[in-house]
Design a protein around this nucleic acid. Structure first.
Length: 865
RNA sequence: GGGCCCAUAGCUCAGCUGGUCAGAGCGCCGCGUUUACACCGCGGAGGCCGGGGGUUCGAGCCCCUCUGGGCCCA
């Protein structure tokens, strides 16, 4: 018996027979719908994906066997920046929207290397048009999808492969654009010219959900502001290059050191700009000198101050991360203007050095800069700290700011209470996030590969756009690309012309599409019949790290559009940690790919490993010692071998499943014990506790193999001349048949390949469409069977084995006579299995049971020379 | 600074609403080629359940506190 090749064989069979195909005629109450996480195709699947997707598959298989029609689709998340970056590096191109489209364009490279085999560098990249760029994105993601699907099939995910979608596909674009326009119509989407986080590398706005605070080295610079009386006010800053953007000094209202200064003004060093000294509770008294310089904008606190204290806007950093070329008009002094001229066009990094030099020269730098480690906000995919720039962007309300006429934040917190999280404590992460939102959701992205914002703007006679009244397409026109399609009533030659129009050049944040996966995959808008059978979904499986992004945004969109939760349950998987308890990452050089693991250990083994970890719990994985996978492999092999053995006793006769044949006390005991296992496993799986279900099932299965099978195999053979009654033989065989039939089904969600293989030997159809076992028929067959007899027999058997083990003789060695000492309760039960125990223990003479404090056996061994 | 999770045999972890628990597997040691399984079987040795305090007739399991990890948010 071997596990090798099962994935190939059964994968193909399931595909041919449509084992996992969704039957859309079933009513909603019969359906179990899953909003599967679409993996990012512009990357590679890693062991963490295998881990969490297996959790979902176990649920899917369980529900399917329980009789639910499972809707289990698969999406591909190709929308967004990761794909753009991968395309740049893979084909050696970059997008330049000003270039014209080139027919039949072939990229200079493929595979991420140049003709000399070196990695593609930015200097190697050829600029191409937006449309050409998008075509390459689509070409590459198509290749990735095939590889992903192959891995998922090999792993045995019971996905209906006719239900797939792409987050950049036409349907996703339509859904995203319709949803956005409806948000706009209801006042849930709006545009604002406001300060926002900006990544200078990718030249795009970034949302709060995409932020990552990281340690960033810097220096404290102590500098002197000048009071009118000639005195100094000392501040500390890590960003002296923003000094020309300074609008105020701010201290805490309770800070006695600065109270006398509130309401007065000081002038900035070097640039000589007069700024007020103001009070605000966000100033930290114990940080630095306790008084801070507020600029446009150094950080989010600056934005708060700017808004709440009604400060002027004095931007000096442009979208490219360089200081603006023109000297700002608020710098009026000659020395100030000269100083700024030195900074114009410099990066913030170079400008910092220049400002420090100027401060030294003027004597306003009071000490050498002190090195420090500070937290700075980064775009999660970027490597330069974010700047804050003012720009016109689209937002969707998310409760982060007061929404007119409603308590949106409160409503969303309520949804969090309504949603059933597994494990439950994950709910607080949702609540923490909603409570911590400090602004609405900025969805405009100044990128290329994404769903366009479906709006145009009229141009007035001067060619200036009218942003206040955008031209909207009708829903049946969607999806559209306003940068290449003209709005109704206009022609393409009016684009960019006074009196004509322009399209919104931006695309939406990927989450603005990903937050609609339930709608995308369920036929919303296009197939209301299907939608009504699926939505709201039953479960959303996902990782704990994206509760604040994917989970939250999906709840938000569903709440706004449908006034409901998108799903009833959220099943949150943990992370995979390496042996040092650090989060696994590709950069760690884990060269082991998921496919290697599947091929090395078998898919069932890897699934067992994944299924052994509870939801929400991180699991350690050491590629050098994949012990859980080895255990899973052992279990799967045991399933094959033990089944073969258990099914072999009746020879060519059909395997008996006749409950009426179960007559012997130990046989009834096994079925009684199994009934308890079925109840426990079922209850656990209903409660999203697959680990518990696996544990009780696995424990029973090993007892079945190690004790019960050993106890009854002699009887089950029913050899001629053994003197065993035919009814006793039939009882053992029927019990083995029934037990195996049930245990295989209990294990099927975790070990789909081995169980299906065994099922095919003697049962009809796929085990994965077989009904989940129930305890009632088992209890009926078990009658007055007592599970305690099984454990008593097991303990007696172990005692007999121990005698031989300690005597260092083969387990085949026979006893002349033997005595088993056991607790009184056991002694009362054990005579019921006397014959089986004598057979398996090899007791030729008397086997007697004596009450004692512990399990112990003694007997005279028959030693042959 | 706020919040959450975790600390139980060498390792990975179970221990649900306090009273047969001190458990499982792996590893380790010893034995064994038993009519399925050497990708094996059998047996065995390992732990003041992180420290301290409290509630209780009784606490890994409840409360407080400390220590040490991890994560999220400021």
């Amino acid at each position: 018996m071997s596990l090798e090749g099962l994935e190939q064989r059964w994968g193909q069979r399931w595909s041919e027979q449509g084992t996992y195909a969704f039957d859309r005629t079933r009513p909603r109450e019969d359906v179990f719908s899953i909003d599967t996480p679409p993996p990012t195709v512009s990357g590679s699947l890693h062991i963490g994906h295998v881990f969490s997707y297996t959790h979902t598959d176990v649920v899917a298989r369980f529900q399917r066997m329980r009789g639910r029609e499972v809707f289990y689709p698969m999406g591909w998340d190709d929308n967004g920046l990761p794909t753009e970056r991968r395309v740049q590096n893979y084909y050696g191109v970059r997008c330049d929207p000003s270039l014209p489209y080139v027919e039949n364009f072939e990229p200079p490279f493929t595979g991420g290397v140049t003709e000399t085999g070196k990695a593609i560098k930015p200097a190697d990249q050829v600029p191409i048009s937006r449309r050409n760029f998008i075509e390459l994105c689509e070409r590459l993601t198509a290749e990735d999808e095939q590889q992903f699907e192959a891995l998922w099939r090999h792993l045995g995910l019971s996905v209906d492969w006719s239900q797939t979608y792409q987050t950049i596909g036409p349907r996703a674009q339509k859904v995203a654009q319709v949803a956005f326009l409806r948000n706009l119509a209801r006042g849930e989407a709006y545009q604002a010219d406001a300060p926002g986080l900006w990544d200078v590398t990718f030249q795009t706005a970034v949302a709060q959900a995409e932020l990552e605070a990281r340690d960033y080295p810097g220096h404290f610079h102590e500098l002197a502001f000048h009071k009118p009386d000639g005195g100094h006010v000392v501040i500390e800053t890590t960003r002296p290059e923003l000094l020309p953007a300074c609008v105020a000094l701010i201290a805490h209202p309770d800070d006695e050191r600065y109270q006398p200064l509130f309401g007065t003004t000081v002038t900035t060093p070097v640039f000589g700009v007069e700024v007020p000294v103001l009070a605000h509770p966000d100033a930290e008294m114990d940080k630095g000198s306790g008084i801070a310089m507020c600029c446009t904008f150094g950080d989010l606190t600056d934005v708060t101050w700017w808004r709440e204290l009604d400060l002027p806007t004095r931007s000096v950093v442009g979208r490219d991360g360089r200081l603006l070329p023109e000297t700002p008009d608020w710098i009026t002094s000659e020395t100030g203007r000269t100083a700024y001229a030195e900074l114009a066009g410099k990066t913030t990094f170079s400008a910092r050095a220049a400002v420090v030099d100027a401060l030294r020269a003027s004597g306003d730098l009071l000490a050498d800069p002190k090195p420090t480690q500070r937290k700075a906000n980064f775009y999660e995919k970027g490597d330069k700290p974010l700047e804050i720039v003012t720009s016109r962007q689209w937002y969707i309300r998310n409760g982060g700011r007061e929404a007119p006429g409603r308590n949106l934040r409160g409503e969303l917190l309520g949804r969090g209470e309504e949603l059933q999280f597994h494990p439950d404590f994950m709910r607080v992460r949702y609540a923490n996030w909603v409570n911590g939102l400090n602004g609405d959701w900025l969805i405009s992205r100044q990128r290329f590969f994404g769903v366009p914002i479906p709006l145009w703007y009229r141009l007035d006679a001067d060619g200036e756009p009218d942003y206040d009244d955008p031209i909207q397409p009708t829903e049946d026109e969607l999806p559209i690309d306003p940068s290449s399609q003209a709005p109704a009533g206009y022609t393409e030659d009016q684009r960019g012309v006074p009196g004509g129009f322009i399209g919104d050049a931006d695309i939406m944040d990927t989450w603005a599409t990903s937050s609609l996966t339930p709608q995308i995959v369920s036929g919303w808008l296009d197939d209301e019949d299907l939608f009504s059978r699926l939505f709201p979904f039953d479960v959303r499986p996902q990782g704990q790290d994206i509760i604040r992004t994917w989970l939250f945004s999906t709840v938000l969109r569903s709440h706004l559009e449908h006034g409901s939760l998108p799903w009833a349950h959220a099943a949150i998987s943990g992370w995979i940690l390496d042996p040092d308890r650090k989060k696994m990452s590709k950069s760690k050089g884990n060269v082991i790919t998921p496919m290697d693991l599947l091929e090395q250990h078998s898919s069932d083994a890897v699934r067992y490993w994944a299924a052994s970890a509870r939801l929400g719990t991180d699991a350690a994985f050491d590629p050098q010692q994949p012990t859980q996978m080895k255990i899973g492999r052992r279990l799967a092999i045991k399933v094959l071998n033990a089944s073969k053995f258990a099914l072999s006793f009746g020879g060519d006769e059909p395997v008996s499943l006749d409950p009426a044949a179960v007559a012997e006390p130990i046989d009834k005991a096994v079925l009684a014990a199994l009934a308890d296992v079925v109840d426990e496993a079922t209850e656990a799986l209903e409660g999203y506790d697959h680990t518990r279900a696996l544990e009780v099932t696995e424990t029973f299965f090993w007892t079945l193999c190690d004790d019960y099978l050993e106890l009854v195999k002699d009887r089950a053979y029913g050899r001629d001349g053994s003197g065993i009654a035919p009814a006793a033989v039939a009882s053992a065989r029927a019990t083995l048949g029934i037990a195996l039939d049930v245990v295989l089904r209990l294990l099927a969600p975790v070990l789909p390949f081995a169980t299906e293989e065994v099922w095919s030997w003697w049962r009809e159809g796929s085990i994965h469409r077989a009904p989940w076992p129930t305890s009632a028929p088992l209890r009926e067959a078990a009658g007055d069977g007592d599970p305690a007899l099984l454990s008593a027999a097991g303990a007696a058997l172990a005692a007999l084995r121990k005698v031989k083990s300690e005597a260092k003789v083969s387990q085949k060695t026979r006893f002349a006579d033997a005595v088993v000492h056991a607790p009184e309760a056991d002694v009362a039960l054990l005579p019921a299995v006397l014959d089986d125990l004598r057979a398996v223990g090899g007791v030729d003479g008397e086997l007697t049971f004596v009450a004692g404090a512990e399990h112990r056996a003694e007997g005279e061994l028959v030693l042959e020379s």
